[in-house]
């Protein structure tokens, strides 16, 4: 049985700074990293490899330099790393991205049965949380989003039980395998690669699947297959921090001001 981890190489958005003069993004020197949520997906796939003997495969769609991300997956211990890269895949929104990933998973399924596909709950650059459900729907897999704990996997009954973390509540859900699971950070603690694994991964083969391999209709992938497009990018209004009232002389007044501000911003659920 195969467990798949879908991972994405993203710019480290925590390193992004805004030029205070032009109010534009300073992209200089921003490193590319594995999407943090995806590293938890990767970790969970490795744990299933260890606990259930699944074969772990890492998949990533991206430009050729996303190979680095897949090498990290190899260093962490996946059995196979596959880069889905083609000129025609570029400029994809979530709908066409899930198309390519789902096609790749289907291709894998010809080799062996797929047990679980893990995705991060969202990426830090796009923040959409839509690719996971897209894959699940396209493949007809059970869809379990925002999972913070795998309670049980029953291979005999082909079910998985998970805990989902939702606003103000948790749900324990049982679903049929194969399943697509998106994970939150609390699920696990990603491992750090050992040096021998790192060195081995530098030489290991990252497979490249382009559209000659996947044979998808070019009108359903990349920019052409994307119903949404970005018409404009602009810098958000930035508010400087604000010191409220005189908390030393009038603490109650300052507290009232604060509550007012929070109410204005609709941040207080009262």
């Amino acid at each position: 049985m195969i467990v798949v981890a879908c991972i994405k190489q993203v710019p480290d958005t925590t390193q992004v700074q805004i030029d205070p003069v032009t109010n534009t993004l300073i992209r200089d020197g921003i490193p590319f990293i594995v999407n943090p949520y995806d590293s938890h997906a990767l970790e969970e796939s490795l744990r299933l490899k260890e606990s259930h003997g699944f074969r772990a495969v890492a998949l990533s769609m991206g430009p050729p330099n996303a190979e680095a991300t897949l090498r990290k997956a190899l260093a962490a211990g996946v059995d196979r790393s596959i880069l889905l890269s083609d000129r025609v895949f570029g400029g994809a929104d979530t709908l066409s991205t899930s198309n390519v990933l789902a096609a790749a998973i289907e291709k894998l399924a010809q080799e062996d049965e797929i047990g679980i596909v893990f995705c991060g709950k969202q990426t830090i650059d796009g923040d959409t949380a839509q690719v996971g459900p897209g894959i699940a729907v396209r493949l007809g897999f059970s869809q379990l989003t925002l999972v913070d704990r795998i309670e049980k996997i029953d291979l005999a009954k082909k079910t998985v039980t998970v805990r989902r973390k939702l606003e103000g509540r948790y749900e324990i859900v049982e679903a049929r395998l194969p399943a697509m699971i998106t994970v939150v950070r609390e699920l696990n603690r990603p491992r750090y690669p050992t040096v021998p694994m790192r060195l081995a991964s530098a030489k290991a083969q990252v497979e490249l699947w382009n559209n000659e391999v996947l044979k998808l209709d070019v009108n359903t992938v990349g920019l052409k297959g994307s119903p949404t497009w970005v018409s404009r990018i602009f810098s958000p209004q930035r508010s400087e921090g604000e010191i409220l009232g005189d908390g030393l002389k009038d603490p109650v007044g300052a507290a009232l001001l604060l509550v007012d501000r929070l109410l204005e911003k609709d941040l207080l659920a009262v």
Binding site: T14, I33, Y192, T194
Partner: peptide, 19 residues
């Protein structure tokens, strides 16, 4: 060899390497 260290160090190592 074992990637075993106090968990606080995971962030530390990654920050040094990536940032």
């Amino acid at each position: 060899m074992e990637a075993k260290f106090p968990e606080e160090l995971l962030n530390f190592f990654e920050n040094i390497e990536q940032r």
